[in-house]
Design a protein around this nucleic acid. Structure first.
Lengths: 142, 142
DNA sequence: CTGGTTAGTGGGAGTGATTGTCGTTAGCGT
DNA sequence: ACGCTAACGACAATCACTCCCACTAACCAG
């Protein structure tokens, strides 16, 4: 009743599936390209639409890459709780990290300045060991 | 010899001055508009160029606003050290916060997963007390 | 199974931020 | 004051993302 009707479409599943399969964060454009590669020429608009709804449903996370591009990652079932990411800026490999201390700190800071409805973003970028050694990391994206 | 020559231009000073005067984070476009308003029609390219160099010099901070726009803030003299921000998502008021614990935690996480060249972003968004009360805050931006 | 209703689709145009180009302008050392 | 060249600025180009709208196909009766 309350929930708007959601039709299960082929494209919706495809987008979700790509997101699930990809290891780290992928941009909408990446996903669109991957879909075409798989022989499923899903429209760009559709990709964005599904990405947005996945985010709203809480099964996907968005972070803004340093160059201002929005990147998405499937984080649904594994982590119902709030968490953050440690992302390799070369291969895109992502580790999920939780830090209760950070959450507490954020809440503390917020109350200290009397801010309400507090939200926060914490992302750590670095270079993972494999990428550091084999600087020619070309196997990331086929 | 070694250092590249830096010419002190009127426009450079103007951009910097606008950044210093503005309370919170402003987008490049905002700054450009402010400059025109002040009767200094500085070119948009020039604004971006100066903003970038200010960031490189470490006197300005950039964060990506939720809608993907880059926003800049003057953070030079007050804080030579690494710090983060608590931003009111209504009026844009910004508090600077430092958290050695966070820095330590980030470094710890990084070494745990053997990541090097680590960088991180921590931004806290909330609604400050004044904005919460007077929910009809229209005085923020003219 | 069939038909109607309408959410979902797609592609192309539109938008808005940011970058690149290149001839012109104006600091700065001589 | 002169000349060299960094900096400027207007516009074109790019790029991620959104909008529009006619078309397709899911879902629900009958």
């Amino acid at each position: 009743m309350a929930t708007t009707q959601q039709r299960t479409t082929v494209q919706g599943g495809a987008v979700r599936s790509v997101l699930v399969q990809s290891a780290g964060f992928s941009s909408a454009q990446d996903i669109h390209a991957a879909l075409r590669r798989q022989g499923k020429p899903v429209g760009l608009s559709t990709v964005y639409r599904h990405l947005q709804s996945l985010v709203e449903q809480g099964v996907a996370d968005v972070i803004q890459s340093p160059d201002g591009e929005a990147t998405y990652r499937y984080c649904g079932e594994t982590t119902s709780a709030h968490h953050h990411h440690l992302v390799c800026r070369k291969c895109g490999h992502t580790e999920e990290v939780t830090a209760p201390a950070i959450e507490r700190w954020a809440a503390q800071i917020a109350s200290k300045f009397d801010f309400s409805d507090v939200d926060h973003t914490v992302e750590i970028f670095g270079t993972c060991a494999p990428c550091r050694k084999g600087s020619a990391q070309s196997a990331a994206k086929s």
